[in-house]
């Protein structure tokens, strides 16, 4: 198939970017989206042009690196799919595919389609952990966890931090990501000790980094490649409310 592309090109964070049109002939419908970009880059390099910078790592949908906004949707068409799992058969020949980087104040563009997602690391550093004494691991059966709670916590923990939720949200809100991280700890015994401080610290950091507010549009849930539910956001709202009510004034 012959592919028409409109790709965001930006030399560096400080320079202004623009869309550039490309065509790629004889691409296979079985190619993954990233393989198609590889083929485009090979063509550009052979022509002596600068290849398109895009982020990728595992290419099997678990690392959360491939962050492309394709035809108005993060990770392109398809349900619960990352960009690397997307194939060219999902697109119609002849129709231009528009590729943009994530757009958010929290994620400045570094080059072309690569954004700086350190903001998520900063949120995790603020509270996305449990404090544990190092040493020999204790017996697994010493902390009893209900199966349904363990399952729920796992459903939250499958978040790969790709930030499609921020990209999809009309307010560039990071609440689905933050709430998934808050939930995975809040649901388990090990996370309860620091739950009140955690949720407050993570929300404070999220606000500080300039992410928008949740208006319960739920585009995040619709676009999350791992199907993280907005019930996590409700849980974070409850956790935060309880924490604010229940902590002493500092």
């Amino acid at each position: 198939m012959n592919i028409k592309l409109k790709v965001w090109r930006q030399k560096s964070a400080k320079e202004k970017g623009k869309f550039v049109k490309y065509t790629l002939e004889n691409a296979s419908p079985e190619m993954s989206f990233l393989e198609m970009l590889d083929a485009l880059n090979t063509k550009l390099i052979l022509q002596g042009d600068d290849p398109v910078a895009f982020e990728h790592d595992c290419r099997e949908g678990i690392c959360g690196c491939c962050s492309l906004y394709i035809n108005g949707r993060p990770h392109g068409p398809g349900e619960k799919t990352t960009t690397c799992e997307l194939h060219m058969r999902s697109f119609k020949e002849g129709k231009t595919i528009v590729i943009e980087p994530w757009r958010s104040r929290g994620f400045p563009v570094l080059k072309d389609l690569i954004v700086d997602r350190h903001a998520f690391d900063k949120i995790l550093i603020a509270g996305g952990f449990i404090s544990n004494e190092a040493g020999t691991a204790q017996d697994a059966n010493s902390i009893l966890i209900r199966k349904d709670k363990a399952d729920e916590a796992f459903d939250s923990a499958v978040c790969i931090g790709c930030a499609a939720c921020v990209a999809a949200c009309k307010n560039a809100s990071a609440m689905l990501f933050v709430s998934a991280k808050v939930s995975q700890f809040a649901l388990l015994q090990q996370g309860k000790v620091e739950a009140k401080q955690r949720v407050q610290a993570m929300v404070r950091k999220m606000d500080e980094l300039g992410f928008g507010n949740c208006t319960n549009t739920y585009a995040c849930e619709a676009e999350c490649p791992k199907g993280i539910s907005v019930t996590n956001i409700a849980r974070m709202n409850r956790e935060f409310f309880g924490a604010r009510i229940g902590t002493q004034k500092s």
Partner: peptide
């Protein structure tokens, strides 16, 4: 929170 808008308008369900 989104100083640069997307060129292709949002097609996400919601």
């Amino acid at each position: 929170a989104r100083p640069v808008r997307y060129a292709k308008s949002n097609h996400s369900q919601g």
